[in-house]
Amino acid sequence: MTEALAANSLLYLDDVKVSFDGFKALKGLSLTIEPGEMRAIIGPNGAGKTTMMDCITGKTRPDEGEVSFEGGTIDLTKLDEATIAELGIGRKFQKPTVFESHTVEDNLYLALKSDRGPLATLFHRLSGAEAARIDELLATIKLTGRRGDLAKNLSHGQKQWLEIGMLLAQEPKLLLVDEPVAGMTDAETMETAALLREINASGKSVVVVEHDMAFVRELGVKVTVLHEGGVLSEGSIDHVANDPRVIEVYLGR
């Protein structure tokens, strides 16, 4: 049963447990993301959302449980962050993190899929194809006009978009997006939802962690509710919103 689940999945988490000095951040979390799926994950603070992302991207080693990629063929718990990134998992942090003293263009240039070895980068020359890809990405994230500006001079929302652009530049199979609309205006939020749907439509799987219910509703995808390090409820936004357990612990109504 679980074998079959793993085989058809892109990302597969089974009974993942993590504890920090006695505090159990994840208590047997299981989650399956299909290829091409977009999933929204919600949950109150301390539910284990960020720890889950840490386990997937190799930042934290789970104490127990399975984390695998591409139909269960790749065990992510044995790999480091850089290897996992090269396998095709891109991650956007909760706090927008871009290279502040590089230009917008260089931020994307660094993120472009290419040989990551030091000698390769030492003698690397920007190719025509790469320049074209950068132009394309700049258009996607609507930053063409600011390509030469330092990233630190961007607004908060623009930084969020630039970071999403950097994720796309890596050409990942799976995007993990942590609170992409925090600090955005309503208009920006809607645009971001559209951008993520667009990315998903192009065949990439997306996992979005978000608090903003309007945004999650706008995404219109399956929702997983985390609580105290485990899955509390799963289903459509309307399903989980009406689940009494969810209402009790999260929506607080």
Binding site: A85, R91, F93, V98, L110, A111
Partner: peptide, 8 residues
Amino acid sequence: SRTRFIGY
């Protein structure tokens, strides 16, 4: 971290 997570 950002650098690490984009694969360097």
